[in-house]
Every structure is written in C-alpha cells, then in structure tokens.
Design a protein around this nucleic acid. Structure first.
Lengths: 231, 231
DNA sequence: CGCTACTTTGAAAAAGGTCAAACCCGGTGG
DNA sequence: CCACCGGGTTTGACCTTTTTCAAAGTAGCG
C-alpha cells in the first residue's frame, strides 16, 4: 500500500498550482484516496457529481454506452491528469461513466469544498483560473512545437527556453535537469534522435556538450539555425 | 476597416464558452477593439495589468528584455488565442512586454468587469473554470494524438469520434463538415497523406468513401486496425 | 572489478512530406 | 447543350526525416 503525499500532489495540479499554502490546506480534508482494481466503475453516467478526480497511478476510461450496449470511449485519463472538473464546476450530473483500465489510485476532491471556497473567496477562484490559464498556454505551445517544428528546432527551442542567462556575456550554460531519455521524451523524440541532434549542433560549433552540461556558444546563431521556411 | 462581431468572438473563447448570453453580454461594454501596426508595443513589462487580450488577427510577441538589451521571446500569440489572462486573474503587473509582430486587431477585455463579475457571482467564476477545463482536456487529447498516434490512427480516431451513430445496426455514416484540406490540417497531416490513408482504409474494406460522405463499414474492426504495439 | 543504467553510433527501414501531374465535378457562359 | 474553367482531390515518384534495431561505448558505484 503506497503512501502518497496528498499536499504535494495537489500542489502540482494546474488547477491548484497558484493556491496559497492555506488555501491548499483547506482542500486536504475534502480529499480522499480512492483505490480500485481494474474494471471497477468509479461513477456511472447520470450519477450526481460530487467532486473531481486526480489520477495518481493507473488509467481511467471515460465512456458512454448506447442503449444497444455499444460503448464509445470518450477519453483515457493518464496519471497526473484529472477528470470531471468541468462537470463539477457546472454542477451537472456526470455525462459519462468512468471505469478503471488498471488497478489505480485516484484522489477525490469533494465539490463542496471547492465550490464553497469559490463562493467564500473570489481570490480563490481567480487563482484556480490563473493556474488553468497558464497550463493552457503551455499546452498550446507544445502543440505548436510538435506540429510545426522539426527535431532540430525543438531541441534548439528547448535549449533556448532553458537558458536562464539573460546576460549578453559569455558562458550560457544549460544543465539538463534529468537524464536525456526523459528530455527526449518530453520533446517527443527518441533518445537516439536527441543524441544525434546534439551532436549535429555541437559539430556546427553552436553548442558544446559535456554530459548534462550544455554550453550555448552562440545563442544568437543557434536561434537562427534550422529556420528554413520564411513563413 | 474590418467590422467584427465581438459577441461571436468572445463566445468562441474557451474562457467564455460556458457563459450564459446575459453573462457574456455583460462583458461586451468592457471590451474594446485595439488596432495597431507592426512593431507597436501593447504593454511594457511592469505596467499595471488592466485586462486581458484576444487576438482577432495579426500576431503578438511576448518577451522580456534583459538589462543588457538582449531580448528573450517567451511566446508568440496567434489569432484566436488570448494572452495576459493568467496575470489578470492574479492581479499582478505584466511580467513581460507585448509587441505586435504584424498589423493586428486585438480585443481588450477590462479586468474590472471580469473580476467584478467573479466577485458578484460565483457561478460566473465556475463557468469560466468549466470552459477552461474543457479546453484543457481537448488540448491534452490533441497532444497525445500528435505524439503517440500515427497518421492512420489519427484518421481512425477522427472518424470514430465523429461517428454519432450509437446504434449497433448498420450504416455508420460520417460526413465531413468541411473540405478535406481542413480536416487534414486539423489532424496534422498533409492533404495527400489524408487522402492516401482514406484510400488504404477503404482498400481494407473498413470504410467506404464517397466525397465527403464516409461510411464506416465495420467500426469495431476499424478501431482495432493499426494498433501495433501492445505496450 | 564488474555491474547496471545511460548514452552514443551505425545501418536499414518506415513514415510522411514534397512536387508535379492528372482527375473529377459542379458551375458558367457561349 | 456543351466546352471550359477552377477548386478540391487523388495519384505517382521521389526525398527527407525520424524511428527502429542492434551493438558498442561510458560512467558511476557497490
């Protein structure tokens, strides 16, 4: 039976990321772990919505079932994601059913506490809104990245993004926070491709790679490298 | 001087999509068109935030400038997107500067009206939250689609998604709402690839294409087709 | 010293994109 | 009625990018 840190988990949700410690703490009593085995139904379509869910581990299928019994999967929810928030905010009944695809651990946050907090404290609502807005911008950026930029541009974009040296001087150093496998995955590349791109950039004299330390030799040139079509 | 329908435009924003007509109408007086030419600065870093912006046409660059004058682009905002909402909800000053990359038309929605509405009416806040949540789910789905599914799977996913026939019987018909060029683009494919995939599925006897009318001959088989790795 | 996990490299294959040409089809005007 | 657009769509040949598979390095660490 895994022990998890509810506070830490809530904190990392887009919805809650902007909340103050006290505001977050206020939600903890209304949050409870929901463990279930594969195939278990979390809620049925038409049930009264009493809160939202966060997936800690496992996977959840949201689906509707027609009168004939044909099932239509609306969405698969993966770890780290949440579901039923939109319904909760509207105070409607669940328009879909939720079923566990694997043995899973969910967190259930009661709608009472969230809705009450919104009513009691408009600033609370604003923080939720801000958190979601930020996440939305991040996702939009990702979608654009994946769809219009190629591997080289994505890597360059990542390096530039993580180059915190605002100074004009020398020595822009980016140190990768995790292993290259994960970076590659986040950029939607295979580790091999990522490695090759770094090699290529290094070949071109634009960066210098030493383990997880990457020196941007000429950020300006780097930003221009790989720009092919002047849209 | 293009004339635009402010109500219709607001209505299609994720943030506002769940608002009632009256709630939306309440925002209109606080919304004004902002036209500007390429290079114009919409706001500077550090300015007091007095509202959020929607891009009708044109493009906006969000950037910060270091003390040395080096500029770092944080984000490019395209038509249909909004910016500065997150800051507005937090009531902070703008952490970036915004500059037009092209001659543009923006809509400015005053923070007063939105924040006031949130304070006055918690349901208003909930609707904003619901709209954002829904959009977030849609984007997450898109990101997953683009990154883990190949062309065939994306097309199949689209067809299944747009097959409204919940009935078990025959004749699942999907009629494309717009021309295939646009569908292809939405699926992040070239029109050629889209055409080829339809051909291939039709070849396999899973669908039958007649102009914009596509008949799903065997949705069940279709759903399984192209599933390659049993991760 | 010898793991084990991470990273790099090479060769081959697959997926998808690009370019160019053909095609289809509804509308238009002779 | 029919030739002739012109957009959308399809097809084929070719090319680029990225992945895949396999193998070899490499580095940290018990």
């Amino acid at each position: 039976m895994t022990q998890i840190d509810i506070r830490a988990f809530l904190r990392h949700q887009p919805l809650f990321q902007q909340l103050s410690d006290e505001q977050l703490e206020g939600l903890v009593p209304s949050t409870q772990e929901v463990r279930g085995i594969k195939g278990q139904v979390v809620f049925q379509r038409g049930d009264v919505c009493d809160g939202m869910y966060l997936v800690v581990y496992g996977r959840v299928k949201l689906a509707i079932t027609s009168s004939q019994g044909a099932e239509k999967v609306i969405e698969i929810i993966n770890p780290g994601q949440s579901f039923a928030e939109a319904v909760m905010f509207l105070g409607q009944r669940y328009p879909v059913m939720a079923q566990l695809l694997e043995d899973s651990l969910l967190l259930h946050v009661a709608s009472d506490s969230i809705i009450a907090a919104i009513h009691r404290d408009p600033v609370f609502a604003c923080r939720l809104l801000s958190g979601l807005s930020q996440r939305l911008h991040g996702l939009v950026r990702d979608v654009e990245r994946y769809s219009v930029e190629n591997a080289i541009q994505r890597v360059i974009g990542y390096l530039l993004q993580n180059d915190e040296g605002g100074e004009e001087g020398v020595g822009h150093v980016v140190s990768l926070p995790v292993n290259k496998n994960l970076i590659a995955s986040r950029l939607n590349l295979t580790p091999e491709t990522f490695s090759r791109v770094l090699h290529q950039l290094s070949e071109a004299g634009l960066i210098s790679v030493n383990g997880r330390e990457i020196i941007l030799i000429n950020p300006r040139l780097l930003a221009g490298y790989g720009a092919q079509n002047g849209r």
